[in-house]
Amino acid sequence: MQLAYYPGCTIKASARQHEQAALAILRALGVELREMAEWNCCGVVHTLTSANLIRHMAPVRVLARLRQQGAHEVVTLCDMCFNTLARANLLARQQPEQFAAISASTDSELRYDGDASVLHLLQVLRDRVGLAALRARVRRPLRELRVYPYYGCKLLRPSTVGIDDPEIPTLLRDLLEALGATVIEGHLQTRCCGAYQAVDQPELVAERVTATAAQARAGGAEAIVLSCPLCHFNFDTLQPRNGAPLPVFYYTQVIGLAFGLEPEELGLETRQIDQLPPLRQRDRAQAKGGAA
């Protein structure tokens, strides 16, 4: 399976390990992502007023370039990119007059009529690859691992573009259970982490990630598993430093571990593996077994 791939800025900056892990597990599953030849930032947040048409240009340009490059659908890893591109796509189909205005202001350099589809990698894994195929590829079931899947906002809301039930999603649970992990759940899984407030109101983010991590820990979770690079940054840097913060992993990295891939193929440092007691114990046991 070959799919066009839109990385987004952060996948190339602070979230490179997510891309590395995604490419590794997709190789193992026989899926090839082909990065778009030229692409720009999607704009990250969908513009919510009728006055700022210029701010729709970034996602429209991504979709227009996708079509120019001959593809009809595109996969994203980043939840923010997915949401912004999918909503721009929806707008292109529902309000073509707004897009005509954008096109006119650029000498028709930007032409797009809503005929592409935007996919999140999780959709590809669930709907194209299938969880059964994922389960069949598992070489190292994560049986001893207790994880708290965190959905955040952009995978689910608004429900017009979300990829699972906005109130009671099951996608990450199903995925992690297919890998053999024990899933801990709670109502904060779908509550926003504070997103870009990390820039100048980090206290808002700290309050949210602290509460969510506390719920995960109270349920017995040893790690938080999530998808969005901004959630990842917030959970990684803004959990309280007193007491041990819960480690944070991209779902791609957890899939890779279950596939038996090496941590370095998944952008994981030894330090991070050491934060997962069951994996560390098993690695020790295997090392002993191998030596004997």
Binding site: A15, G43, V44, Y196, D200
Partner: peptide, 14 residues
């Protein structure tokens, strides 16, 4: 340290 998406989003909203 910020992910670019944080800064882009913040600029667009603020």
């Amino acid at each position: 340290d910020l992910p670019p998406i944080a800064l882009v989003a913040s600029l667009r909203r603020n």
